[in-house]
Simulated assay, not measured.
Amino acid sequence: MTGTADEPGHEGAPAVPESAAWLKGELLEIASALYPDRRPVVVREWTDPVRLRDPAPVGHRFLFLVCAGRDDHLSSPGFDDALNAFDAAGWNLHRRTSDHPGESAATVRREDFEARIHEGKGPGILSFTGWTPVVYTEGRLGQPPFTRSTSRGVLCADCHGWGVCMICEGRPYSGGSGGYGRCWCAANNAGPGRCIECAGQGLLTPEEASWKRRRYGLSDDDSGDAFPRAAAEGGHDSNTSAFIDVSHRSCACGEFRCFWRNNLSRVDGHLLSRFAGTCQGCAAQRAYVFTLPLA
Rank of each mutant, 00 (worst) to 15 (best):
A190W: 09
R182G: 05
V164G: 01
G163L: 03
P192G: 14
E208P: 00
A157F: 09
F227Q: 08
L204G: 07
T205G: 07
R214S: 12
G235S: 04
P206H: 06
Q201F: 05
G170E: 10
G191R: 06
K212W: 06
G224L: 03
K212I: 03
R214W: 11
G202M: 08
A190E: 13
Y216E: 03
R214C: 02
L204R: 14
R182K: 14
A186H: 15
G200N: 11
A187N: 14
E169M: 10
A199T: 06
W184L: 10
W211M: 06
R213C: 04
D237M: 00
D222W: 07
I196G: 08
V164Y: 11
E208D: 12
R194W: 11
H236F: 10
A157Q: 11
S177N: 11
P228I: 00
A226M: 08
G200P: 11
M166Q: 13
R215Y: 13
W184V: 08
S210H: 12
C195S: 03
E233F: 01
D158L: 00
G200L: 09
G217W: 11
A187Y: 12
A157G: 01
L218F: 04
G175W: 00
G178S: 06
V164K: 04
P206R: 03
L218R: 07
G191S: 07
D225R: 02
A186N: 15
R215V: 01
G235K: 02
A209H: 08
Y173M: 14
S219I: 02
G170H: 03
C195K: 03
L218S: 10
G224D: 08
N188K: 08
Y173S: 10
C198G: 11
C195A: 04
F227H: 12
G161K: 02
C198E: 14
A231K: 11
R215N: 06
H236E: 07
N188E: 15
